[in-house]
């Protein structure tokens, strides 16, 4: 099999910001849109000052992870409706606030803890080491009872774990996300404990569906979605998917994840999507479909393990999912 390793200097066509966008940016995005008469989707790509991980693009679609029944949510919605409390608690906050000088390139990721091959590696080099990026279409279910369908680009987490080579004592993997209060406004307030921390069991991390995303829709992931590198665990609630990861640490004991520290009765360690276990404040039985059905929108039933029951149920055999929520 021929795998072409892209060079550092290579940029995909999509990463290049057309010169005219630079000229027009001072007019403001709306004005620019009107003058240029372009659609919303194009606007999302215009005016981005820097791209994150650019290695691995353009990506190839992995047909094993593409369900014809899943209709991907519009790019503009995926990149405008974000929970990224580091940049504000409103869904609209991260898009403007994460693109005001916070740099996601160059980016170094540290792989450490109970591994035989610890490393500090540039995000682009890491993607190249993992054999480039592929595209998978996953369901995405937020704990707030809304859902999207997202075409992620990236590489399987299992590849990274194989490369790190965990020691037998390693039982959990923690994902520490960025801490940079100077450039990240939300981290100057104590909304949550910073840096945001998430963790998985090692066997969960090694599951074929666990994914490290570096892109969306075949383009480098925008800052507001967790550039340059984020976790994607499609059978769990979205908050498990740590964004802008700087450290991957292999440990022996189960760590506490940020939301669990914040409100243990509401957010567990596992956070598997489960329509039969409600959030104390709202039902998880169904979900709003983002961008679905015009102005009134639409709702659909939530599936066990977010529709990945066949693949994931075995991980939790014999466990009381009411207790381990």
């Amino acid at each position: 099999m021929l795998i072409r390793s892209p060079q550092d200097w290579e940029l995909p066509e999509s990463a290049a910001t057309p010169e005219r966008d630079y000229d027009l940016r001072s007019l403001g995005r709306r004005e620019f849109l009107k003058t240029a008469g372009l659609g919303l989707a194009t606007a999302a790509l215009a005016g981005r000052p820097a791209f994150a991980t650019t290695a691995g693009f353009p990506t190839k679609v992995n047909p094993d992870y593409r369900d014809a029944a899943l209709k991907p949510t519009a790019y503009e919605l995926i990149t405008s409706y974000n929970n990224f409390y580091e940049f504000g608690t409103d869904k609209a906050d991260p898009k403007p606030n994460a693109n005001k000088g916070w740099k996601t390139e160059p980016w170094t990721v540290e792989i450490t803890g109970l591994v035989r091959n610890p490393a500090k590696i540039d995000a682009n080099d890491l993607v190249a080491k993992m054999g480039g990026a592929e595209q998978r279409v996953y369901r995405f279910r937020c704990v707030e009872a809304w859902s999207m369908v997202i075409p992620w680009d990236g590489f399987p987490l299992a590849k990274l774990i194989a490369w790190a080579d965990p020691k037998p004592e390693a039982k959990f993997v923690t994902f520490t996300t960025v801490l940079d209060p100077k450039n990240i406004p939300g981290q100057r307030r104590g909304t949550l404990e910073w840096p945001y921390l998430e963790a998985l069991r090692l066997d969960e991390s090694n599951h074929e569906l666990a994914f490290m995303a570096t892109g969306i829709y075949g383009r480098p992931i925008p800052n507001q979605n967790g550039a340059p590198l984020r976790l994607v665990v499609p059978w769990k609630y979205g908050f498990k998917c740590g964004k802008s990861i700087v450290k991957i640490n292999f440990v022996a004991k189960q760590p506490r994840n940020t939301w669990n520290v914040m409100a243990a009765d509401e957010y567990g360690f596992y956070a598997n999507v489960n329509p039969t276990v409600d959030h104390p404040r709202w039902s998880q039985a169904s979900e709003r479909v983002i961008g679905g059905g015009g102005l009134l929108g639409t709702r659909q039933k939530t599936l066990m393990f977010n529709g990945y029951e066949k693949q994931c149920a075995a991980l939790y055999k014999g466990m009381d999912l009411r207790k381990y929520y």
Binding site: R30, L40, A74, E76, L77, S80, Y81, D90, K91, A92, K95, W146, R288, I290, G291, L295, L296, G297
Partner: peptide
């Protein structure tokens, strides 16, 4: 008027 995508994601909400 603004057709704000963060609002259009789930207008009824």
């Amino acid at each position: 008027y603004r057709q704000d995508p963060s609002v259009l994601a789930d207008p009824l909400k």
